[in-house]
Write a protein that binds this DNA or RNA. Structure first.
Lengths: 256, 256
DNA sequence: CGTCACCTTGAGTATTGTCAACTCGGGTGG
DNA sequence: CCACCCGAGTTGACAATACTCAAGGTGACG
């Protein structure tokens, strides 16, 4: 009796339209009108959800679309000149994957997108999106904003990875994730991490052992409650201090 | 007799148009037509060159334009939550500065742009640029490509800073710079670095002493000839190996 | 000719990576 | 049904890369 139920679920997902999508304030321009939503809706295709580990697009495949995450989570990796993989980002519902590939000189995707859990996406064929953006200034503006946000997010990671200690990177990573969960109206203090320790480590430029050690240390400090991939922020104030490297403030408090 | 001469120079710069700018293959869409160039030209303003250290825009100022570098060089920095500065990028002639600020929620510039030497820029007021992009699909596409390239560049830095040794970072940085010089038809083997050691270090997530030490070591290895900010690539093959961390290849060669 | 950035070089240290062993939980197959 | 295996995660010991602190050196510019 489970198979038919799953099929119904899938059908329900595929029938959904932008106009009644709970995420539309996140992935659509704020000022868009109903008729315009319809136009956007017409170019979007919703495929069957990807299983965990499923590949949404692969580095080197011809670039044809960007994707809005509906549910689940995606990681993107690009392979370095030396052959290792670098996790360039994580994408949660309401976020857009593939923006980095738009202007790739080769015309191909410049990274690989992999589902971290069962994940549903909306495909936005880029040619059509671009045409539509020419007609709808608010959509064009929104796309510029999205890409620009991606640039700023990458610059934040850059600065995180380049100038901060391992503790600060982990603390900041968790707080950023928490803010993104909050934005999509989920609990901001009880996070379920869709990615492995190894993915986190790779993304933050750390060894996976370091990530593991720091999470347990934060737990011992009663800043977090960690249970595998479930992480609860128990002391947000302290976590923010850790993110900023305010060792002394905490020390002062402790012997006050 | 120098003042008038400089004034003439400045006037010459300001009178220049996109149509006869040597950089236009780099900063304009490849398929643009003459009439369209004229439209673009009309919205561009060319200000008097910035002196070294001059601020093009400052973090927190209202965002109104992006800038094409005509000559000289620009660095962008953003200040971290803890107050330090992070050098997020360097911009050479033909490159566009300010793309990261387009979608800043506050509507302000999200970083500060500073001239590393005497620098001339073209200002592209963003409202007008956006309107024009709505009319000229090739311009819209070009802007998407530029932003997407910026994302990829940042991701490369991310991976450089997160996963590579100091040697690899410096080697890769020099090679990337060399490629950019080549693209603008300058010598690819004799580089003049417009930025200080400290800027390089900051950008690559290193201490400035480390940068200095590595440059002298590369010089001792006869890979580079370094003289202050003049750097000559003496053994490109070897530099590429260093960029990829092929320690063994070199070691093998040496006792062959 | 002095000052002031900027750069170089040295010595000692420490944060973080590497290697390695072990635990835990889930799924598979005998 | 149980044993086994495998991947993910944890923990420990040790090593090394790169940072910090500190002391010169060099060149430009007033």
């Amino acid at each position: 009796m489970e198979i038919p139920r799953r099929h119904n679920l899938i059908r329900a997902l595929r029938q959904t339209h932008c106009s009644d999508c709970a995420l539309n304030p996140v992935c659509l321009p704020p000022a868009i009108e109903d008729g315009e939503i319809q136009q956007l809706d017409d170019i979007i295709s919703r495929n069957r959800p990807l299983a965990r580990g499923g590949v949404l697009f692969h580095e080197g495949m011809p670039f044809d679309a960007v994707f809005a995450v509906r549910s689940g989570a995606i990681k993107t990796c690009s392979s370095t000149p030396t052959g290792e993989e670098q996790v360039t980002g994580f994408y949660l519902p309401g976020e857009i994957v593939g923006l980095d590939s738009i202007g790739n000189p080769s015309g191909n995707y410049g990274s690989t997108a992999i589902a971290l859990e069962t994940t549903a996406v909306c495909a936005l064929p880029f040619d059509a999106l671009q045409d539509l953006a020419g007609k709808l200034p608010s959509l064009q503006h929104h796309l510029f904003r999205l890409m620009s946000s991606e640039i700023r997010a990458d610059q934040q990671i850059m600065q995180l990875v380049g100038r901060r200690t391992a503790d600060e990177r982990i603390a900041t990573f968790l707080l950023t994730l928490s803010a993104r969960y909050k934005r999509r109206h989920l609990s901001e203090n009880h996070l379920h991490l869709p990615m492995s320790r190894s993915d986190i480590a790779n993304h933050l430029g750390l060894a996976l052992e370091t990530v593991s050690r720091i999470l347990t240390r934060f737990q011992n400090m009663e800043v977090l409650k960690v249970n595998g991939r479930d992480v609860e922020i128990a002391n947000r104030q302290r976590l923010m201090e850790l993110a900023n490297g305010d060792q002394e403030i905490a020390a002062c408090n402790s012997h006050a």
